[in-house]
Simulated scan of single mutants.
Amino acid sequence: MRKLKVIEHISLDGVIQHSADENDFPYSGWNMPYRTPAGREAIMAAHTESFDLLLGRRTYDIWSDYWPEAPSDPLADRLKAAKKFVVTHRPESLKWGPFEGVGPDIVEGVRRVKAQDGPDLVLSGSSTLTSTLLENGLADEVLLAVYPILLGTGKRFFAAGTPARSLELAGTTTTPSGVLLNTYKPAGPLKTT
C-alpha cells in the first residue's frame, strides 16, 4: 500500500496561500526570502526520489501553468514525471500529465489510489483536501515547513470546520534561514483532559 505524505509551506499563523489566485491575497512569494540550498535539499529529500502527486483541482491548475515549462532541475523533473491524481469534476479538461482523475467520491478514490502499486503519494497546497484526508485517516505523514512570519490573512492549512485532530511529532530540523521542518504522524482525534 502506498503512503500519503502531506507537505506544506506554512506561516506561523497557519497560512499556506502563496499566490494572489483568490481573495486579493497581498503577499505572493512570501516564502522566497527564506529559501536556502539546505532548505531546498531537505524539501527534495522529503519528496523522495520517486513519487506521485495527489492534487486538488485548483492546485493542479496553478501548477500546470508553471511546472510543465519550468527549467530542468531535480525537483522540477520529479514533479513533471510524477503521475498526477487530481480531485476534479472535470477530468476531461486535464492536460498536464501523466494524470488520472480520482473520481467523484474523494475518500474512496484516494483509498483506491493508495491501494494501487506505485510510488508513495505527495499532497501539497490544498487545505480542503488535507482536511478531508486527515479526518478520514488517509494521510500517513504531515511535513510542515514553518516560516518565521505572521501573515494575518490568506488561505489556512485546514478548512474551516475541520474536526480537531492530534498529531505526534516524529522529527524536526531547522534551515539556516530559520524555517522549521516538522514531521508529524496523525494520532487520531483530539484528546482532552
Rank of each mutant, 00 (worst) to 15 (best):
R156W: 03
D120A: 13
E135H: 06
L53E: 00
F51Q: 06
R156T: 12
G152C: 03
E92S: 11
V122W: 01
E49D: 15
L94V: 06
M1H: 13
I62D: 08
G161H: 03
K95P: 00
S127P: 05
R2G: 09
R111F: 07
S72C: 09
G171K: 11
E92V: 04
V6K: 01
P68N: 08
S177E: 12
E92D: 14
R156N: 03
V122Y: 04
D65R: 13
V146K: 03
L169G: 10
H47S: 11
L75H: 13
T132Y: 02
A20L: 08
G188V: 02
D24S: 15
R57L: 01
L169C: 10
E49V: 11
P119Y: 10
G154Y: 02
W96V: 04
E141G: 10
L123C: 03
G101I: 11
E168K: 15
I16D: 01
S11M: 00
L167Y: 02
S64R: 13
K191A: 14
S19R: 12
F85G: 03
K80F: 05
M44W: 08
A139Y: 03
Y66V: 15
P186M: 04
P98M: 10
S166T: 13
T130A: 15
W30R: 01
A45V: 01
P74K: 08
A82E: 04
D13Q: 04
T172K: 14
V87W: 02
G29P: 05
L144R: 02
S11Y: 01
I43C: 07
V122M: 11
T130Q: 09
R35G: 13
L123E: 08
E69K: 15
G97P: 12
G154V: 00
E41L: 08
Y60H: 00
P176V: 05
D73Y: 15
L134M: 12
P74F: 07
D65W: 06
A159N: 05
Q17F: 02
L151S: 07
P176I: 07
D52H: 02
L133F: 05
D117L: 12
T193I: 14
L12S: 05
R57A: 07
L144N: 01
L55M: 06
S131H: 07
P71S: 11
A159I: 00
L123F: 07
P71G: 10
R35W: 15
A38T: 11
N136F: 09
G109S: 08
G161F: 09
A164I: 00
P119M: 07
T153Y: 11
G125C: 03
P104L: 13
P148C: 08
N31L: 10
H18L: 15
P33W: 07
P74V: 06
T174Q: 14
G109H: 05
G97N: 10
A187I: 09
I149R: 10
P186W: 01
E135M: 01
M32P: 00
K80Q: 09
P189D: 14
T128Q: 14
P68T: 12
D61W: 01
L138C: 06
P98D: 11
Q17W: 02
L121G: 06
A20Y: 05
L181P: 09
L190M: 10
D77A: 14
I10W: 01
H9F: 13
T48C: 06
L134N: 05
A46S: 14
